[in-house]
Design a binder for these strands. Structure first.
Length: 506
RNA sequence: GCCCCCAUCGUCUAGGGGUUAGGACACAGGAUUUUCGAUCCUGCAACAGGGGUUCGAAUCCCCUUGGGGGUGCCA
């Protein structure tokens, strides 16, 4: 089997689109699954849209996602440079070859003339509104002009582009891995510009030349490229090169079915109804886990199928089960709810030590960094299944690091009864006597007090939770108390008995 | 306009001639007499429409409708 080499070939526009990340992910997964090579190539041939820092940003996001290329701007590779803007001589060489063999030609038409042609205003252009076989002879190019005129115009430095001379009577057959057989009639295809007047190539020329030179075996990219495949196929043919296999991925949409587009918002909550943010970094900033994001987008258009109903995947598991054959044809809507759920699942499954590492910066900021790793681990054990986001830890678990400063009002009203204070005090006395302050012993003590007063356990459990944590919800009480430790529990219970009745008076 | 792609619960999807059309998110209800945002259980909910082909179509074919992409000296 020929070796697998795939590429992710984004143009640096300033931010990484969620759809681009998925394309990168699928390329990466495919490469890893097939012991192949994952190449990153920067398609920066549009100088008019150059965005400062966009490439650095792109690479940073890819690295964050763990989709680290085997070859690319940051990795040595035998097929560089990996910036198309640094490969212009190469493209010119191949464009020249096409011109010499009569498959491409110089064109001198001005933007204004092209616009007139497209709008059908040019007198001689009634036959077509696109630059193709019907009209090329009446335009200003090396096909319609005399050889001498062309030489002179070139010598005079007249701006020109190089266009591909698309044959009029061909059917191009595409065998797409995802879509199957697709046919295109060359009559529908115009004479694509290959080299722009600024000397840079268009995507079409550059991607064919580079994919060939870089020995790309499979082109995995978005569906928006499907209709330009015949142009690419024709170029491969002109050069007598073998075209790589192709797989065109379905698009990803907003919840309302519209295209995802960048807008200026400061948080995901500010998104207009039915919209979602296309910028990957927004999700990173919002606190989503890398694995959850990757898991979510992997599932947009792909599934393990056939009896496999797994939803939560690590990247390793994705690599093991990924295959292009199971990629869907139809576009998918990006679902924030599912992302949230996946984030929670990933957090819940995370190793406690790993979670602690994620938490450490936040703990430091909060000033809660003077506890032992063992203590943190126990707290994480109690809390991790309840976290939707890492940062929920600091809210849900605050009382493990500092005394509660207030008590949840609704909980107080519901749970704190007239006899609560007395029960608390008696419970204090009981646990004070305990030699081993563990969940089992604590529960036994509490049940005893409840029995003595002929009340249900809940009559003590709920007020204690409130007193000790300030919250009406949380982990199982006895585990919680054990982790907190006798001293702090008693201190907080006593304080609550003093403070709460007054609060309830108000 | 023209070309191309797509079409199963609200969403992501399984299923590719015979299924009570399965799962997941979301939503709703219940359980857990230790709460809940945790956990478990249950429920709600779909084959876009019309023609064929066939003993039998969600599945195959055609048309319509709807959605999307392309039609650039953008990628």
């Amino acid at each position: 089997m020929a070796s697998v080499r795939v590429r992710f070939a984004p143009s640096p526009t300033g931010f990484v689109h969620i759809g681009s990340l998925r394309t990168a992910l699928y390329n990466y997964l495919f490469a890893r699954r097939n012991n192949g090579v994952f190449v990153l190539r920067i398609e920066d041939t549009d100088r008019t849209r150059y965005v400062e820092g966009a490439t650095e940003n792109l690479i940073r996001v890819l690295n964050w996602a763990g989709l680290v290329p085997d070859e690319g701007p940051e990795q040595e590779g035998p097929y560089g440079p990996y910036f198309q803007s640094q490969r212009t001589e190469i493209y010119h060489r191949y464009a020249q070859e096409l011109i010499e063999s009569g498959r491409a030609y110089y064109a001198f038409d001005t933007p204004e003339e092209l616009e007139s042609m497209r709008s059908g205003k040019l007198p001689q252009s009634a036959s077509s509104t696109r630059y193709n076989f019907l009209i090329r002879d009446s335009m200003c190019n090396s096909l319609s002009l005399s050889h001498r005129d062309v030489e002179r115009m070139l010598a005079d430095g007249m701006p020109y582009v190089v266009r591909l001379k698309m044959p009029a009577d061909r059917i191009f057959n595409v065998e797409d891995i995802i879509r199957g057989h697709v046919e295109f009639d060359s009559k529908e295809i115009d004479d694509q510009v290959l080299i722009k007047s600024d000397g840079y190539p268009t995507y079409h020329l550059a991607n064919v030349v580079d994919d060939h030179l870089m020995q790309i075996s499979h082109v995995i990219r978005g569906e928006e490229w499907l209709s330009s495949v015949p142009k690419h196929l024709y170029l491969y043919e002109c050069f007598s090169w073998q075209a790589p296999k192709m797989a065109h991925l379905p698009l990803i949409f907003n919840p309302d079915g519209t295209k995802m587009s960048k807008r200026d918002i400061t948080s995901l909550a500010d998104l207009p109804e039915g919209k979602v943010d296309p910028d990957v970094e927004s999700y990173i900033r919002a606190g989503f886990e890398r694995d959850a994001i990757l898991n979510a987008i992997a599932l947009l258009g792909w599934n393990p199928g056939d009896g496999h109903e797994q939803e939560v995947f690590s990247v390793t598991e994705l690599i093991e089960s990924f295959g292009l054959e199971r990629v869907n044809k139809s576009a998918a809507i990006f679902d924030l709810q599912k992302l949230r759920w996946l984030n929670k699942e990933h957090l819940g499954r995370m190793d406690e030590g790993d979670l602690l590492e994620r938490l450490k910066p936040g703990l430091a900021i909060k000033g809660w960094d003077r506890f032992s790793d063992d203590y943190y681990t126990r707290v994480i054990g109690l809390l991790k299944s309840r976290l939707s986001f890492v940062n929920d830890f600091f809210e849900y678990g605050a009382y493990f690091f500092q005394d509660p400063s207030e008590y949840e009002e609704k909980g107080l009203k519901k749970r704190w009864k007239a006899q609560s204070a007395n029960l608390m005090l008696e419970f204090c006395q009981e646990i004070d006597k305990l030699k081993s302050f563990n969940a089992g012993a604590i529960e036994e003590a509490l049940r005893q007090v409840a029995e003595r007063h002929d009340v249900g356990g809940g009559q003590i459990i709920h007020p204690v939770r409130l007193a000790v944590s300030g919250f009406s919800v949380g982990p199982g009480l006895f585990d919680l108390l054990e982790v907190l430790g006798k001293e702090r529990v008693i201190k907080r219970l006593k304080k609550a008995v003093e403070v709460i009745p007054a609060l309830l008076q108000q």
